[in-house]
Write a protein that binds this DNA or RNA. Structure first.
Lengths: 148, 148
DNA sequence: TCTCAATTTAGAATAGTTCTAAATCTTGAC
DNA sequence: GTCAAGATTTAGAACTATTCTAAATTGAGA
């Protein structure tokens, strides 16, 4: 487990990714990751807990938070924050943005982003930009249809 | 107070805006709005409460939330959500984006946005886009300097 | 096998927000 | 001006989301 710092391209499998961040692969982390990939509906920690519990009854809420944090830390999962509500989790690490339905609160992946170049963002002196998060707000197809 | 619905361009002063949404101008709402404009550092509800309390000692937390909601509802204030923490409030209604410092958590207004046209976002069928929120992540000047 | 550090666990604690019911204020009708 | 109806404020309780704590468990390396 040396030469870790010298491995520039992070791997795409869970084990490698965790190791790369100095974290271990545990059954719980695996389970949480699976839950996220199984139904990519941007669940809250609570929803992840319930789904994981169905398969692994002894898992605890604290562990779910730990696991989610570990997955976020090692770059396998993204955190998604909507107004005032609980944080949601997204295992899609492709560059994409999120569409929030103002009506029903559902979240949808939109496979299109605005790159820093496209955006032509000119920051004041001193700021160091790492990434751009784009959130789209409006009505999802269902709610748009209902709204006449 | 009729003909309200027939007034298409919303006014820019607090009273008009509130009225336009069927809300009243109260001393508390005025105070909360002032607090926000006085120091535009994207305070949390709690910070707003403390600052408002300094000038208006009888004001309660519930009222601060009510007022913030009213101000958001009538379009005088924007809600800003950062990862997992408390919601922040921004009285700058100019089109702008927010820069979050990953290090110190500070929030900065960046007077540049990506319009739906510029972005050239193509949504799947049925979605109705209302607005785009752009959040920039990275290091603020202070933290960038410290980070060598 | 032993030791040490990482991880998990249950439950307590905290933070952020919303709810409730009573009191107060405002507005429009008379 | 007076009154009723509805909006708003208030304190505090309740609730939800998240973090902390301390003990138990696990796993890796010596």
């Amino acid at each position: 487990m040396n030469a870790v710092a010298s491995k520039p391209p992070p791997e795409n499998n869970l084990n490698e990714r965790l190791a790369h961040s100095g974290l271990r692969l545990t059954p719980q982390r695996q389970q949480v990751h699976e839950v996220l990939r199984e139904k990519m509906d941007h669940p809250t920690a609570d929803m992840v807990f319930m789904r994981a519990k169905a398969k692994m009854p002894e898992i605890s809420m604290a562990t779910v938070y730990n696991c989610l944090d570990a997955l976020v830390q090692c770059g396998m999962v993204r955190q998604v924050t909507l107004d005032r509500g609980a944080t949601r989790y997204c295992p899609n690490m492709q560059d994409h943005s999120h569409f929030y339905c103002d009506e029903c609160g559902s979240v949808h992946d939109i496979l299109q982003t605005i790159s820093p170049e496209d955006a032509d963002i000119k920051l004041p002196r001193g700021f160091r930009l790492k990434n751009i998060e784009t959130n789209l707000h409006g009505l999802c197809p269902d709610c748009a249809a209902k709204a006449k």
